[in-house]
Amino acid sequence: MALFDPKGARAETRQVAGKSVAVLLAPRLVRRGFLHDVFYGLKSLLTGMRVTLPYGLTTSRIVTRQYPENRGTLKMYERYRARLTFIRDGQGRHTCTGCRNCEKACPNGSIIIETAKGAVTGKNEVQRFIWRFDACTFCNLCVYTCPFDALEMKGDFEHAVFDRRLLVYNLNSYAGPHASLWDKVEDEEQRKTLATKISPYDGKVPLAGTSMAGCPARAHGEGGAS
């Protein structure tokens, strides 16, 4: 005779807001006198021991993952949102047209896009696609909104740096037209002038290059660790 009877729950039907609802009534706990409670109490403690004991005897139930040790085999899920990147084709060209849909969709202004009219193509071209990693909440709305499939979230997650300013950088590797505009330019010499290579820390970005509380300004790309 247990104080708690798992099958003691009673099923019944009740009227709630004009609907009949199937409810399950909680079993009540009852006292059955001092001696019974003492022996029942002992039994319930032993029951608990019986449940937990196998966990101590066998190692097959260990679920802990040893993180730094398992780095070699650790694989994140393909949809895991950890770092915003440009999708690039085989020649390293992105498909961002600089339409600013992601900039508008971003809830906290983590994306800043600079565009300019291309001298050869005459179209809007991305000069810099600045992503503020330090402010991003990984809501995925930029990827979701992008009409040209230019963005994706990558699963790599070890991004710790010693200087917050290093988390503000350009996603594009060149300032120039998106992939499909390249093929329309036929002149070989003109093609060479289409793009200017840029590094992640080129140009002025928010936070970068300014001094922050007690921390002197650093040149772009200069690591915080050294």
Binding site: A2, L3, F4, P6, L29, D37, Y40, G41, S44, L45, T47, G48, R50, V51, T52
Partner: peptide, 17 residues
């Protein structure tokens, strides 16, 4: 397992009833 460990346990009962 949770039920066996917790729901019938005398200490938990005394703390909740």
């Amino acid at each position: 397992e949770y039920e066996a460990l917790l729901s019938g346990n005398v200490i938990l009962e005394e703390r909740l009833r």
